[in-house]
């Protein structure tokens, strides 16, 4: 399994003045669930695309430092080579449909056909991906006729079928209704339990807090902090960085109830319950 190593990554989009990423360095261990938070324009999506080699190989622009996936330096390989190691799912499920396939089953096959896999292997992987994302019953539907949540799960299945070690989700639920979001989160959690490294950008802080092993806080292209959800959401300057902590943390802060052992505010319902227990109502 591949470890991700980012060293002094700097990037500027073509025809722009400001750095979208400004000297970011960190490491991610195999199998971790990483949440990336920050306000709009803080460089979250740019960072996501830097993992896949879309930056700089698709967008061009000015690039400094390096991103290493295992032994591979992302900058030196083509996107199609890296896509078997790192998969990415975008915000809009609609625009991830290729439009050249008439059924969900064929749609998932698209990437596998490009990789030149044998038919037997394709069928095995597609069946497996459908199963994992719980969309087997839609296999013969037209991809455009699915609901948003189903479509997004199909997009994830299409990526899963390519067997990546790392999956990047760039605001996968921002265009979905609560039920659709929940379906997607459940699916992502299952993938994480299988040992796939997950990197997720998300504005729903409660979800980030509940699922992430570590959370990265970005602001204006700089990495402000990269630590456990409890540490990140207990920071006093979160609002200055444009992030509203989870409701449970705000309750804990408002009532001044910290976890006795760690001295951090609660970030999930369970932690909040523990922190508030024994309080007179």
């Amino acid at each position: 399994m591949a470890r991700i190593e980012v060293n002094h990554l700097k990037y500027r989009y073509p025809h722009t003045e400001n750095l979208a990423l400004d000297g970011v360095s960190f490491q991610i261990e195999p199998g971790e669930f990483i949440g990336i938070i920050g306000k709009n324009g803080s460089g979250k999506s740019t960072l996501c695309q830097a993992f896949t080699g879309l930056i700089p190989n698709f967008y061009r622009g000015a690039y400094g430092g390096n991103v290493k996936i295992g032994e591979i330096n992302v900058r030196d390989v083509e996107v199609d080579e890296l896509c078997q190691k790192v998969g990415i799912v975008f915000q809009n499920p609609f625009n991830q449909i290729t439009g050249s396939k008439l059924t969900v089953y064929d749609e998932i096959a698209f990437g596998l056909e490009n990789l030149g896999l044998s038919r037997k292997e394709m069928i095995r992987r597609i069946d497996d991906a459908l199963e994992q994302l719980d969309i087997t019953r839609f296999r013969d539907r037209n991809p455009f006729d699915l609901s948003g949540g189903q479509m997004q799960r199909m997009a994830i299945a299409s990526i899963i079928a390519m067997n990546p070690e790392i999956i990047i989700l760039d605001e996968p639920t921002s265009q979905l209704d609560p039920q659709g979001s929940e379906e997607v989160f459940k699916a992502v959690q299952r993938l994480s339990q299988k040992g796939i490294t997950i990197i997720m950008v998300e504005h729903k802080m409660e979800k980030i807090a509940a699922y992430s092993d570590r959370v990265m806080l970005l602001d204006e292209g700089k990495m402000i902090d990269f630590d456990t959800p409890q540490k990140i959401f207990s920071r006093d300057d979160l609002l200055e960085h444009g992030v509203l902590p989870p409701a449970f943390t705000r309750i804990g802060r408002g009532l001044d109830r910290k976890n006795a052992a760690t001295g951090e505010y609660p970030v999930t319902l369970k932690e909040a319950k523990e922190a508030l227990e024994g309080m007179a109502v």
Partner: peptide, 26 residues
Amino acid sequence: VDTKERAIALEVRGFNAKTKKTFLNE
């Protein structure tokens, strides 16, 4: 905008891979 997003989505699914394509439907 859609076209750009779709181009990226195709790219990350190996659309430009140099290996010889195979087909699911025999």
